[in-house]
Design a protein around this nucleic acid. Structure first.
Lengths: 167, 167
DNA sequence: GTTTGCGTTCGAGCGCGCTCGAAGGCCTAG
DNA sequence: CTAGGCCTTCGAGCGCGCTCGAACGCAAAC
């Protein structure tokens, strides 16, 4: 798969305007019902990551995967759902370390829910900060693009930092 | 400096709501008038990067820096402005390679403006995509946090992928 | 039977962006 | 005179997240 199927669906579902809705995200977490266990390549295609990376995640303790009679990996629905979650968190910039810790908590049982919530809240705040940073950079770049288009100053190099005469 | 001074100013200037305005970004590009050349530690503090990194950027050809009688670096206003630009682009995720190429273009003269514009436009689109990805991840995380708070399902682990009964 | 194709394990290697340490110079304070 | 502090250059090292190659196994296709 050339592009990230989940993300493509996600962006389609969200449309091009307005903030993402909870309804939209719900659709994203629905994998479409009951699944046969999947082979590594199917999962890799679904998540748009390499089989190598999937094995790496397993080695890292992020997910347990059963084997068939030939020793080939069989990803059941739980494993796939967890990997959807994990890849989404990775995409959002959560480090492997944190994911490993989070999974440790999940496997330790319900009593770790508060700590998991703490992690999620911190991650949420990290994402928000990152979005704000990017929004700022975006505005800077857009301004720069606009300036390049209409500028007639003395030295082109100044454009890299110049303050415009008019907004 | 513990936090990124420029980013802090930026976030203050932009406020907590609404999209960043061109007016706001203008203020950010104003370094406050004429500058004495700065020593490496001053620049490092201003940009919230290490002196090591500044030397590294110079080695990488991103900026030329004069020396004083003792061989110490003297960053003039142009160098500082360029570094502000560069660190902002780095923060927005532009790879070193691309920045090196961009700077090569800047130093090649005005006739490279169209190619520079192409780079900026591509970078702008990259930032936009990244913001959309993050917005999606953010919604997913926020939904998950909300679900953790009010959920009474059979298995806590299901929360990692569950679809809620109600939005 | 052999080739093709997809899987396995293991450990090593890579690309990026820093980050650091060693060895030394210059200036100033005590 | 010496010690401290900040600077210099140079090359090496690191942390992260993959990414790959080697050597092998099984099973269906020809």
């Amino acid at each position: 798969m050339a592009t990230d199927e989940l993300m493509r669906k996600a962006l389609e579902a969200l449309g091009d305007d307005g903030p993402p809705s909870v309804e939209a995200i719900q659709r994203l977490t629905d994998l479409g019902g009951v699944h046969e266990p999947m082979m590594i390549n199917e999962v890799a295609d679904l998540l748009d990551i390499s089989p190598h990376t999937l094995r790496y995640y397993e080695r890292a303790g992020l997910v347990e995967v059963a084997r068939d009679g030939n020793g080939h990996r069989l990803y059941d629905a739980d494993a796939v759902r967890r990997l959807v979650f994990l890849t989404r968190m990775r995409l959002a910039g959560m480090p492997m370390r944190d994911l490993q810790h989070y999974i440790t908590l999940v496997e330790a049982g319900k009593h770790t829910v508060p700590e998991r919530l703490d992690m999620l809240i911190e991650h949420r705040d990290t994402i928000r900060r990152r979005i704000r940073e990017l929004a700022l950079s975006l505005t800077a770049v857009e301004y720069k693009i606009a300036t390049y288009g209409g500028w007639t100053g003395p030295d082109v190099q100044d454009l890299d930092t110049a303050v415009p005469r008019e907004p």
